[in-house]
């Protein structure tokens, strides 16, 4: 079994994120009137070589921002990101660009992530050219091989993105990321824009590539069932913080945080015979510009023991039953008998 809980790990981590913080200042007309949005507010986790960590949350939870700051596509406000032991903040711009060979990203929207004015071949070859991974005359062959590896025809290289369906474009995006032979890929909702029947194809492709190339993924998604399918470990985010993290089996099959329990319950069950009582949360997540001072989930929490402490004191992640959970009363199951 790969990985362990959030705090411990069996192998040296490939990626180590500690105390990651990303704040944005929203535009007020005057600089002073703008509020500070705490998109990511102190997030720590590790990803081992070959491991997939699922990062689950709703919109505004900060999961996408985590993915982008980990790759330094956005600069973190605070915190440390180490890749293969190197603190990314310590690198000069050139060194960071060289390191990008090892860590890649696949985006959610296959319509926006490819340059409409460049051929598919040019997009896939981009990384090979930047890092001079092959002599010029060998590039077309490399590109064709990559396209075939993701299940496309090698001759597609001369076509433009608009000639392809969403699923095909997502495969092209994956081929572009693979071109630089990375060890780690941030998959930012890679299938949520695709048709159901195509989602499964792309998911299987990501699984195949992981097996063949020994890739590690940070798999960002809002769909717990999807994450259950691909991730070894799962981190559940709410309002910029991780509320529960552990192996996928532990966290999803016996969630301890009330929010995780609600998420699990909200996953549509295709079998009406199995449909159990649903937890329907009331209200919406609070704005990340004005999070509650205590537990971020307190405004929607249905835990019977919820009290003043939850309002005042932010719960820390602590180990419990083989996972880490941030809830003062996680020992008591909020939904008895589950």
């Amino acid at each position: 079994m790969l990985g362990g809980t959030g705090s411990g790990h069996l192998t040296t981590p490939l990626l180590e994120v500690a105390g990651l913080v990303k704040h944005y200042r929203t535009g007020g007309l005057l600089a002073r009137t703008g509020a500070v949005v705490k998109a990511v507010d102190g997030v720590s986790f590790t990803v081992a070589p070959g491991e997939t960590l699922g990062l689950v949350g709703e919109s505004g939870s900060g999961k996408t921002t985590v993915g982008r700051t980990v790759l330094r596509l956005e600069l973190p406000t605070d915190g440390v990101v180490r890749f293969e032991g190197t603190d990314l903040a310590s690198l000069a711009p050139g060194e960071l660009r060289a390191l990008r060979r090892r860590m890649q990203i696949v985006f959610q929207d296959p319509f926006a992530s490819l340059n409409p004015r460049r051929t598919v071949g040019a997009s896939v070859a981009e990384g090979i050219e930047i890092h001079r991974l092959a002599p010029k005359r060998e590039i077309p062959q490399r590109v064709a091989n990559l396209l075939e590896e993701v299940g496309l025809d090698g001759s597609y290289a001369s076509k433009y993105p608009h000639e392809f369906s969403g699923g095909q474009r997502q495969r092209i995006g994956i081929a572009r990321a693979l071109a630089v032979e990375p060890r780690f890929i941030v998959c930012d909702e890679p299938v949520s824009a695709l048709d159901v029947s195509v989602q499964a194809q792309v998911l299987n492709l990501l699984l195949d590539l992981r097996d063949h190339r020994g890739l590690a993924y940070l798999f960002i998604a809002h769909d717990l069932a999807l994450v259950r399918q691909i991730a070894h470990r799962v981190a559940v985010m709410y309002l910029g913080t991780i509320v529960e993290i552990g192996t996928a089996r532990t966290v999803i099959d016996s969630p301890r945080h009330p929010y995780t329990q609600a998420l699990v319950s909200a996953v549509p069950e295709p079998d009406p015979a199995k449909a159990t009582a649903r937890i329907v949360l009331v209200g919406d997540p609070p704005s990340p510009a004005a999070p509650p001072p205590g537990c971020p989930f307190v405004t929607r929490c249905f835990h019977p023991m919820k009290d003043e402490r939850c309002v005042a004191e932010r719960p820390r992640l602590r180990p419990l039953d083989g996972r880490d959970v941030a809830c003062h009363y996680a020992e008591v199951n909020a939904v008895g008998g589950r």
Binding site: L114, N115, G127, H131, A179
Partner: peptide, 21 residues
Amino acid sequence: AQYVAAARALGAPPARVLWYE
């Protein structure tokens, strides 16, 4: 644009991003 982020993620230097993307 997301494809510009993709090029940066591939390690493209700023001038290359500007010119090609």
